[in-house]
């Protein structure tokens, strides 16, 4: 795979953080939850709380890689009328206020239905920086990756504890921006303790790539953020944030409350 890339917001972010000796905090949010009207303000709240990069989850009717928390968020968003076109409008709105890197995080079908040629162009025009497709294996990725790269969008792929050496190489070859390491075999959702599978996975993939490594799945508390940050370049928190949005969804101060919650999660990365 050609690795020629122009500088992207994602690449710049990791370079800057590396120069400062700091780790990157990635926040996942299901777009459209609790309603599409909330999403822009919640993204900005996450940024104020210290998030460096936002994964915008595209809601899907059949989220097979997600646990109950993100499943419920997807159903709420769809129920509230979330669409891909609406999400692109939200991105425009975010871009009027912020340059935070945005990664579209989706199951394949909604984007395939939109058409990758169209999607790549519209995503780049509105200010999306990259795409991660949960159920797109590298074997099937040639066409989507080509389209996305044509518009200088980063393509982030998942690596898992079960991935063979051969597969880790393929994942590294197809990825740009960073590689997302799934911390354990399982669906998304908070865990009592950090998975012991992370360290060996980092060890196996590190020699294969110069790309930054992010770890996610099952990280939801500040102490877990601190622990994961010692192993990788970036830490992803998803379900804990989505759960917070669910619990406080009806509050008029949701954005401010989310900002405060996020500040607690990101604190270990600011002080280290």
């Amino acid at each position: 795979m050609e690795m020629v890339q122009t500088a992207t917001r994602i690449g710049n972010l990791f370079a800057a953080r590396r120069a400062e000796g700091r780790k990157v905090f990635i926040a996942y949010l299901t777009a459209g939850d609790p309603t599409p009207a909330h999403t822009a303000s919640l993204v900005l709240a996450l940024e104020r709380g210290g998030a460096d990069l936002i994964e915008l989850g595209v809601p899907f009717s059949d989220p097979i890689a997600d646990g109950p928390v993100i499943q419920r968020a997807s159903y709420r968003a769809l129920e509230a009328g979330a669409t891909l076109a609406g999400l692109l409008e939200t991105v425009k709105e975010i871009r009027r206020h912020s340059e935070i890197p945005l990664l579209l995080f989706s199951y394949l079908n909604p984007l395939m239905r939109h058409g990758f040629g169209n999607l790549a162009r519209e995503a780049a025009e509105t200010g999306i920086d990259g795409v991660l497709l949960t159920d797109l294996s590298v074997e099937e990725a040639a066409e989507p990756v080509k389209r996305l790269r044509e518009h200088s969008l980063d393509t982030v792929f998942l690596a898992a504890p079960t991935s063979s050496e051969r597969r880790l190489r393929l994942v590294a070859e197809h990825s740009s921006g960073f590689i997302y390491l799934v911390s354990r075999t399982g669906v998304t959702g908070q865990q009592a303790s950090l998975s012991s599978a992370i360290a060996p996975l980092v060890e196996r993939i590190r020699p294969l790539t110069d790309l930054p490594l992010a770890v996610g799945f099952g990280i939801g508390r500040p102490d877990q953020v601190a622990e994961a940050a010692r192993l990788a370049d970036a830490v992803v928190v998803g379900s804990a944030i989505v759960q917070f949005v669910e619990t406080h969804g009806k509050s008029p101060d949701l954005a401010t409350e989310l900002e405060v919650f996020t500040r607690g999660l990101t604190a270990p990365l600011r002080t280290s």
């Binding site: 890689a65 294996s137 074997e139 690596a159 898992a160 063979s164 597969r167 399982g186």
Partner: peptide, 18 residues
């Protein structure tokens, strides 16, 4: 790779690929 013409294949999270 499991294709019947354009159909079939393997579209699953990486955890399941190996």
């Amino acid at each position: 790779l499991g294709h019947f013409g354009p159909y079939g294949g393997r579209y699953v999270p990486e955890v399941l690929m190996s």
